[in-house]
Design a protein around this nucleic acid. Sequence first.
RNA 1: GGUCCCUUCGUCUAGUGGUUAGGACAUCAGGUUCUCAUCCUGAAAACACGGGUUCGACUCCCGUAGGGAUCACCA
Length: 470
Amino acid sequence: MITEVRTRFAPSPTGFLHVGGIRTALFAWLVARQNEGQFVLRLEDTDRAREVEGSAQHLMKSLQALGLNYDEGPDVGGAFGPYKQSERLDIYKKWAQTLIDSGRAYADPYSREQLQKFREQAQSEKKPFLYRNHRPEGPPEWDGTQPLRFKSDPKAYSWHDEVMGDLSTGPEVIDDFILIKSDGFPTYNFAHIVDDAEMQITHIIRGQEFISSQPNYLNLYEALDIKPPILATMPHIMAASGGKKLSKRDNAKDILDYIENGYLPEALISFIATLGWNDGTEQEIFTVNELISKFSLGRVQRSGAQFDEKRLEWVNGQFIRQLSTHELYEKVGNYWPEAAKDADEDYKMQILELSKDRLKTLADLRQFGYFFADPEQNMELIEGNKQLRKLSPDRRAELIEQTKNALENSEFTPVAIQETLNQLLETTGEKPGVLFSLIRIYTTWAPFSPQLNDTLALLGKATVLRRLSL
RNA sequence: GGUCCCUUCGUCUAGUGGUUAGGACAUCAGGUUCUCAUCCUGAAAACACGGGUUCGACUCCCGUAGGGAUCACCA
């Protein structure tokens, strides 16, 4: 019998989803999809103090925005629910009871202050602190108000991790840990093991913060008589820009912010997937379907990767270029500048046609205000231009005047404009770099614009002549 | 500090004993009779260090250094 693949993403609702979290979710999703299995979303909301209002909705919205749909979850239900740990307290109690019955769990009699003293004492003796050296004498009954602690069985472990390879540790890392907190909620350490078993999860794909706890989890699996799922540990992602590390704040940028800023979900997916994974070929850009068929945990990098925003921009541009103008139009609804409010569809499509090959993000469209309203003059554009700076104001006025006269008689198609401009080069004796820059700036007052003749043609003769006269 | 993991151009990476160490982003130079954010061409750019093993090490072993993770009634 072939076991169905079931992977899960189990965030705790304490904030937004950043790049590292998304990558973990993406890889778990890919494993499920490529095996035609199920992808489960489970909310690990057992720490009431850290829970952030609205963050569960935010997490689900982020997954949805990226197309990482889940087959089971808090809002969609499923056969193994509920999918919020706070609603599964009875289940944990039941499993805890089996550990109490088998003598593998005990009520922790110490206060936090006492434990702190034990730690300090161990530190002053330069010995590692272990709870298991302080187990209480008798078997005190657990009355539910004390923490319930797991009675570990110290031994060496070696296990396989799909990403990290073969790992091993000695018995000194095995220690007693808390299963149920004094508020009646389980710890992550206990709850995730119970849930993964109950939900029949086959692959645990998670961040490297859990790798050092793994031997203790293996110890608990044994006590619970559960076969551990396949494990895969992801390295962390750090932020970087120009080789310099960014602050924590930048590192933890919300994935929805990227979408808000004009990044396409499929570009984010491709970029994040290749941050620590590749298929061994020289392919740089992957569609979601390609990822589903090509992804493998075994080719995930073991070392951490740094996030390079420039590369993300490039990837995003590649995806934009693959869209037809019509597809692009459908996606840029919110990104037009304010002045475009009343512009008609046909005109906007023409702008996209001209500029689509140069967009890096959809938000770049916001700089195209000059297509819709007369822009404000900005002399810095001229003074900041090496060639234009040298022209005297008189000469500039003269060139603009000549341009105006020439264009007045032009048919104003892109081809005709180009011919007119070429003639103008001869009659004025200026280089293209000077004349064309000048015209471009006087008609758009923007640092960038599509090709000059096309831009002028689209703006129309009346607008161009008006702007040259201002 | 203990434990575990990692280390190829600035960045993401290919590479599993014999390669001119390949690609991509970024950078720089040139081109596309203008800007440039597309596109084309080219350049510069890496095996952390030290020992072994071997006819031969980026590749295997040991050590050093550096980085990461963890050592909670957080996940």
